[in-house]
Design a protein around this nucleic acid. Structure first.
Lengths: 396, 396
DNA sequence: AATTAGCACTCTTAATGCATGAGTGCTAAA
DNA sequence: TTTAGCACTCATGCATTAAGAGTGCTAATT
């Protein structure tokens, strides 16, 4: 981006904007007329040729217009895009979704996902919180019927998970409770990561039950604890992308859907993402990004219908609360023509889970970013609200 | 179907078979050559014209081949189709899926759904059991932290559901237990349908707690009990149908996906289905169905590559264990070009839930029916296996 | 009376040619 | 450095054509 003068930036931005709006390769002539450049099409043509040379644009075939390359989108997102704050109506619409109070964390996360897909018109994904580093707070073993029990695991964050298990038929409710209490006494406060089959077994040593009976229960308790941080994925609006021309090719659409529904694929990918990771290329030079806020000099010949450059959202850009992955940057087959915008939500003090929006590369980045930012905020609020009083049990 | 002589039946069957295989309108000439009829194409042509007259076939346009109408498919499914038993390899493949033992009912149902979609190549749906008529067996209220509790509801069938709720902060674990015990003492054995807010409130009268405190807990307990029979839908392989030419039109594909993912749509539809419901039209005459088993007379000019008429599967037909809905019979927009084959699975003694396969009308009915029948059987076995020992708690 | 051969006709599909127009790159003038 | 101008390219749309698969109908055959 360092190499791009103002005019090139304007042109690149215009090309991306136009292509996002129309899905048609954009040519020099229509650019000039539609965006009221005060230079001739020939000049724009030359600039576009250079932009192509530099890798920001590409041509589907000779004598067609240009479309942005992944690098072009990247530059657009990193330094050309103006992210507006969400309009009051849109914010209200989102708040409205969250109005009916929900008492389960999963319900909230689901809702966030629904909101995102419905309000953006793309596909949304949400990941249940990552709980590896949370502590065991309680464990109960509830007798269901001889031979079957329900293990309930409560984590520090107030998250509750349970699991039906098979146990020796001779055990009664009283004995199960004693085992659970022993485990709870010894292990509560430990992080899930630190708990092993050995620690569980040791914890239950003090109970007077014969080992042969204990073993199966302990194993199930252990598995239940370990599974408490199982990732869950919520997805909404996967059909939405079929409205966009890039998926008119059914083969592509199928690949895309297959990738989305393949169990674990998206979850695995999302859980490995890191926020603020500089998508390593020459764009990372922050100076050039800041350039934007300079007053437009006489070279900035583009007169945008509405100018939104260089003001408050610069803060967002300096400390982006979201991650954007574009096209090939997403390492999943079937999502090659997509972009993936994600952000995290918090539970208590540390980063918990992730929500995201998947759309065509040609997606309305500004709109999605403002929506996802707002949903993130709302979700965080709701979660705090949900677990108020939580601190009292924490660490037990 | 009464009106159809053997030759018409043969021809209709051949047309449907061919169209299912090729997705191309089938003409008289290719029918004669491909299926080794020993009559001329002209004769077949006349018969096809009559079949069209009668409503079993239709023409996409003049001078094209014929394709089956919904009525044609209906006749095919009701009396022309030969359902083979599942091959041993296919059966093994299914058994293999169920090999790893699963301790949760939902896990089993999920698995059944996965198997069906993967083995048939279509979309599968499974509904969690319908529990309205099962009894409340246990209810526990577990303190999670001051102000929050987990209500665990155990039903007669051994099904366990739970729900996080908010409660007055002053209540302690001891009090919650007393409330739960009171409810359990009074209401266990009642069907979910019979339990009302009033019965719950009455049950808890004997506890010595002040009403103001009780009310919120009772309400939450009531809701938890009522929600224990919430239907859940599991769907698998929704992308599969995109492989079939009838969905090459992206618009259709989108409608289809939208209908599938619309919450409640499929669940509502499936839960209203009744097995063995005669799809009221002139086909219901059982005599004609039986005709099939008669030795082919000299009019049966069709020599099928492999004949499977008139033997064991006649029993299946007399007492079909599955329901087939074809095209317009499915009253869901977006599934107009689909067929929907469902069957039920049992839990204990009575019908519990439903599993089904959605494919194009042009689906391989025989294959799907044999698969779904086998999965049904396997699922029933697994469920019985799961809740052996159940009877001991039943009725409590 | 049922079957079939034959024929004229219909309609889709694929291939071809052609005109149009939006786009390009390049050159030479401003 | 910018721009006007021009030749060139290529996708798109449209009309035409030929082939092929299918039909319905009639008259001959069994």
């Amino acid at each position: 981006m360092v190499q791009l003068d103002e005019r090139k930036k304007s042109i690149l931005k215009a090309v991306v904007d136009d292509y996002i709006a129309t899905a048609e390769p954009v040519g020099s002539k229509s650019l000039v007329t539609r965006y009221h450049f005060n230079v001739s099409s020939a000049t724009v043509r030359n600039e576009m040729a250079e932009l192509e040379e530099m890798g920001y644009l590409e041509q589907p075939h000779t004598s067609a217009g240009r479309i942005p390359s992944d690098k072009g989108y990247r530059a657009y997102v990193d330094s050309l895009l103006s992210v507006e704050d969400l309009s009051e109506e849109a914010a209200d619409r989102i708040r409205h979704y969250f109005q009916e109070s929900i008492d389960e964390l999963t319900g909230l996360i689901r809702k966030a996902s629904t909101v995102l897909s419905e309000q953006t018109g793309y596909t949304s994904v949400a990941l249940s919180p990552h709980l590896k580093r949370s502590h065991l707070s309680q464990i109960k073993i509830l007798m269901i019927e001889p031979g079957r029990a329900l293990v309930v695991v409560v984590l520090s964050a107030g998250v509750v998970k349970d699991r039906l298990v098979r146990i020796p038929e001779i055990l009664d409710a009283e004995q199960l409770m004693r085992i659970a209490n022993a485990i709870e006494d010894q292990l509560s406060g430990m992080t899930l990561d630190d708990i092993t089959l050995v620690t569980v077994a040791t914890a239950a040593k003090q109970t007077t039950l014969p080992e042969s009976l204990l073993n199966q229960v302990l194993y199930e308790a252990y598995v239940s604890i370990k599974q408490a941080d199982n990732l869950e994925v919520y997805m909404e609006g996967s059909h939405n992308l079929l409205s966009y021309p890039e998926f008119y090719d059914v083969k592509k659409a199928r690949e895309y859907l297959k990738t989305l529904t393949a169990t674990g694929m998206i979850a695995g990918y999302m859980s490995e993402l890191r926020d603020n990771a500089d998508p390593g290329d020459e764009m990372q030079n922050d100076e050039s990004v800041r350039d934007q806020s300079e007053p437009p000099d006489k070279h900035l010949i583009l007169q945008l219908p509405e100018k939104r450059y260089g003001n408050s959202q610069e803060d967002d850009r300096r400390n982006p609360a979201y991650t954007v992955r574009i096209g090939q940057e997403i390492m999943l087959e079937g999502l090659r023509d997509c972009s993936f915008i994600t952000t995290t939500y918090k539970m208590g003090d540390f980063v918990a889970g992730r929500i995201g929006v998947i759309g065509p590369k040609r997606m309305a980045y500004g709109k999605v970013i403002s929506h996802i930012s707002f949903v993130k905020k709302t979700l965080n609020d709701q979660i705090t609200h949900l677990s108020k009083g939580k601190s009292r049990t924490e660490g037990k």
